[in-house]
Design a binder for these strands. Structure first.
Lengths: 130, 130
DNA sequence: GATCAAGTTTACGTTTACGTAAACGTATGC
DNA sequence: GCATACGTTTACGTAAACGTAAACTTGATC
């Protein structure tokens, strides 16, 4: 099967980051692209990892934290103790995400008010000019 | 009217930050507490500003950006041009917040899956031990 | 009046997440 | 055969958001 691959600039332009950023993620051990000679070759799995890292970034996660979340997916957890601690981790992450959603909703509410006030002010201006 | 006031450590402990953090916000011009002699005295308005700044932080905003959002509230915007640019700012902020909500929901979905898998694995272990 | 607790200024240190520049390799089109 | 685009390593720089330490005031308390 002809597995799709990506160059570093493919991914950089797809995600709107610089190649420096992607190399930096590799330095930090977040991704491990193959090499063909000198050049880095990225797999679809690498691509997804980058995507998830950037998703984490958008909601204010550190790189370390994003990777922590991503690594929840791969099942290197066998025994009961590990599974339980994993469940706890999941619940903590979830709690924080729910708090973030609340924060966002509050802020959205504020923006709605501001916009309404603006539109009313514009409207008033127009009326008074007639 | 006896306006409520707060000491720096009042606010620090209320919000779970250090006094250094609050002084830092002042250095950056984010808040402007009164002085009584040497000491800083915070008003309810100061308190709210800090609260909003920290809310912004939780969803990954920079201090500068949080202040930008906060400052949308105070009406120093008179003419039509300013009002329109303000509305645009509001819409951009809103777009980003909606994207963040999507990101969070996706991540929550992932966490749900992980937790379900964990619980199933635990369940399987228990069954096989009977 | 000595000893705290809480506050102050000044200043240097630290972590994160890249930016930027130098100096070099490689292959592709004209 | 040489420019040009794309890639590489190495390394120093930087902005944001505080931490940490030193050295000092200032009431409150025993």
């Amino acid at each position: 099967m002809p597995e799709t691959t990506y160059s570093i600039s493919d991914l950089a332009s797809e995600f709107g980051v610089t190649t420096r950023t992607i190399r930096f993620y590799e330095e930090k051990g977040l991704i491990h692209p193959r090499r063909e000679g000198q050049k880095r070759v990225y797999s679809p799995a690498d691509r997804v990892r980058i995507k998830l890292i950037l998703r984490g970034k958008r909601i204010g996660m550190s790189l370390r934290e994003s990777v922590e979340v991503i690594d929840l997916y791969d099942p290197e957890h066998n025994n009961e103790e590990q599974l339980n601690s994993l469940i706890n981790t999941v619940r903590e992450k979830r709690a924080r995400l729910l708090q973030q959603k609340k924060d966002i909703d509050e802020m959205l509410g504020g923006l709605d008010e501001v916009e309404a006030l603006c539109e009313q002010a514009l409207d008033d201006n127009h009326r008074s000019q007639r």
